[in-house]
């Protein structure tokens, strides 16, 4: 391990300042549940110092509710998200996904910001964040920028400048209508396991018609993606007109278009279709009853 220095910062400005000086040599740590094993396995050989963000919890570790927008600080742990009453009521798929992260120990330390920044293909919270149209706020010395979750994911290597920027806020618009969602995850055991696959489905209904639909798959492509074709297919339809199998088929089609056929698809393609079928059936079923 080549880390020479461990530093705790007093303010976000200090953190940004240090980052602007040390750039690629600095490694930011929040909960540490991804960073520590990666450090130990030699993944960060070029890093020389660790900047610990935990003293900034007062500023970056809160859940705030402002009008129709929820602000989640990047240092908020998964445990707090799954227990937060506002999230549980208005954004239940995020609470469900957070409850699926790792184990209680990992959820107590691991942060939503870390889940977004390390961005594993199987990152659990990214799937609902994508469905919920989350916006990410990145700060750097002398400025901030706001990036929609989808663009953050699609920008690939250039998605943000780790040597200059710090994620400071996750903004999620709160719904003002009859919206239902469902998050489903498959793993090799019932806790503390990476997603083999996950899906989120979110629909808004007005007068028995679907006025908004979000369909997301995780752990199927290099990062979670919305299935635009499936959303367009559902939009405007009456509940009874939606064929849940079709939604699954469109998700499968997208995966094959994006990555080509992969060995794991022999399993994943039929299973993602089944998961989608279940999620869509349950979401629309609930709304049909309402």
């Amino acid at each position: 391990m080549a880390i020479q220095r461990f530093m705790q910062v007093g303010s976000l400005d200090d953190a940004l300042q240090e980052l602007s000086v040390h750039k690629e040599q600095a490694l930011l740590i929040a909960g540490g549940t991804d960073v520590m094993p990666a450090l130990r396995s030699g993944l960060y050989a070029q890093k020389q110092m660790v900047i610990d963000l935990s003293p900034l919890a007062g500023k970056l570790g809160n859940i705030r509710h402002e009008e129709d927008m929820l602000h989640i600080g990047p240092l908020v742990t998964h445990s707090r998200i799954m227990e937060d009453p506002v999230i549980r009521e208005f954004l239940p798929i995020l609470a469900q996904a957070s409850a699926h992260v790792g184990s209680p120990q990992i959820r107590n330390r691991g942060t939503i910001g870390g889940n977004i920044i390390t961005l594993a293909a199987c990152a659990d919270t990214v799937v609902p964040l994508l469905a919920l149209d989350a916006q990410l706020v990145f700060a750097r010395v002398g400025g901030v920028r706001c990036v929609p979750m989808a663009s953050y994911l699609d920008e690939g290597e250039t998605r943000f400048d780790a040597s200059n920027e710090i994620l400071t806020d996750i903004m999620i618009p709160l719904p003002n209508s009859n919206r239902q969602g469902m998050f489903l995850k498959i793993a090799r055991r019932q806790a503390a396991a990476k997603s083999r696959m996950s899906v989120a489905v979110l629909t808004t209904i007005a007068g028995h018609r679907i006025t908004d639909a979000r369909v997301v798959v995780g752990a199927l492509m290099p990062w979670p993606r919305r299935v635009g074709e499936a959303e367009r297919y559902m939009m405007g339809k009456a509940i009874g007109e939606v064929d849940p199998m079709k939604v699954g088929a469109l998700a499968a089609e997208l995966a094959i278009t994006v990555t080509g056929q992969r060995r794991s698809f022999a399993y994943k393609i039929p299973v993602v279709q089944e998961l989608m079928r279940r999620a869509v059936t349950r979401v629309l079923g609930t709304q049909g009853e309402a």
């Binding site: 090799r188 055991r189 019932q190 806790a191």
Partner: peptide, 11 residues
């Protein structure tokens, strides 16, 4: 143990 999964308490 991230790849070699053994049953956990939930299982």
């Amino acid at each position: 143990f991230d790849d070699f999964l053994m049953p956990g308490a939930m299982d």
